[in-house]
């Protein structure tokens, strides 16, 4: 069942590659809009300095400190503007979510732009509200883990701890547990959205509660599939880590290659995101 759903995920990803392209283009454009002012600012403020040539070697501490001390005032507005654009991006992504899930649900022969956009608009507010609810849930889970961590490590206080070992050991044990535990809530969030789109419920609680029941009823399949998706994503991260560390950046060409690889990595991440949603959608449909 899990494998079947996963396969379906990959096939739908390919079938609706236009969505994939759309997501990537959106990410690329917004990121370019964010990064461009920084480039202009650097060019204006320090563009004539010979120290620019040190930047090619990577992070230069002296350049960084002198830059922040003398021209750093211009960075905060750029960062604020970036934050604004990221929020805008998130809203757009929420908007697209309805279209994406409807496409997976209806499974048209080919990507249908018209129905994609109309469904996106149709579900926007409900998915938006659901995002807010789940933000609280994810925050509560994280807060709970943080609280337990502070309890175990006695507030990280050297006065109360025998040795620092517990600080790191607790971290090493709790992070995987957190990932495992919180993944359940992220998965729940996914199925709640799928449930919402499948049933076109008016109230989001009509989806949040039943989707939880569904997950628990099919826990082996749902969580199994979700963890498999997470595993593939982690593999992707590992592969990217090795590739990006395997060459040095010294020339314009290597900057280009490195940038190209990072874009491939990003495209793959977005692809896996779609695979995750599509496969979960398939699992949901098959079990209802």
């Amino acid at each position: 069942m899990i494998i079947k759903s996963l396969k379906k995920g990959f096939s739908q990803l390919w079938q609706y590659k236009k969505i994939w392209v759309l997501l990537y283009s959106l990410t690329f454009v917004v990121a370019a809009f964010i990064a461009y002012p920084l480039k202009t600012y650097l060019e204006n403020k320090i563009g004539t300095s010979l120290m620019i040539k040190d930047m090619i070697k990577g992070f230069d501490y002296t350049l960084y400190t002198d830059f922040m001390n003398h021209y750093g005032d211009g960075i905060a507005p750029i960062m604020n503007y970036s934050l604004l654009l990221i929020i805008l991006f998130m809203l757009l992504f929420i908007f697209l979510m309805g279209g994406i899930l409807s496409t997976f649900k209806n499974a048209p022969e080919k990507y249908n732009g018209k129905s994609f956009w109309s469904n996106a608009a149709h579900f926007f507010w409900r998915i938006f509200r659901m995002t807010i609810y789940f933000l609280f849930i994810h925050g509560a889970v994280l807060g709970l883990f943080f609280f337990i961590y502070l309890k175990i490590t006695k507030g990280l206080s050297p006065m109360n701890l025998e040795s620092e070992g517990i600080i790191f050991v607790a971290m090493k044990i709790m992070v995987p547990i957190y990932i495992l535990f919180s993944s359940f809530f992220f998965m729940w969030h996914d199925y709640a959205k799928i449930h919402l789109v499948q049933n076109d419920n008016k109230w989001i609680f009509q989806s949040i509660i039943p989707s939880l029941k569904f997950i628990i009823k099919n826990i082996k399949n749902t969580w199994g599939l979700y963890l498999l998706n997470v595993l593939i994503l982690m593999l992707l991260f590992i592969v990217n880590h090795f590739i990006s560390n395997s060459f040095e950046i010294t020339t314009g060409l290597s900057i280009f290659i490195s940038f190209f690889i990072s874009q491939l990595f990003l495209i793959s991440r977005l692809g896996l995101k779609l695979v995750n949603l599509s496969s979960a959608n398939h699992l949901f449909q098959e079990n209802n």
């Binding site: 990410t27 690329f28 917004v30 990121a31 370019a32 964010i34 990064a35 461009y36 920084l38 480039k39 650097l42 060019e43 320090i46 563009g47 004539t48 300095s49 010979l50 120290m51 620019i52 040539k53 040190d54 930047m55 090619i56 990577g58 350049l63 002198d66 830059f67 003398h70 021209y71 970036s82 990221i86 991006f89 998130m90 950046i249 020339t251 314009g252 900057i255 490195s258 940038f259 990072s262 874009q263 990003l266 991440r269 977005l270 995101k273």
Partner: peptide, 30 residues
């Protein structure tokens, strides 16, 4: 930084920062 001045700047340094920053932002967004 202001200790030097060059007429024709090779911009590859800035381009590296630009692409890195853009990649981080994409990563954060995704």
């Amino acid at each position: 930084i202001d200790n030097s001045y060059v007429i024709e700047q090779k911009e590859t340094g800035i381009v590296r920062y630009f692409t890195s920053f853009m990649t981080w932002m994409e990563g954060i967004m995704v």
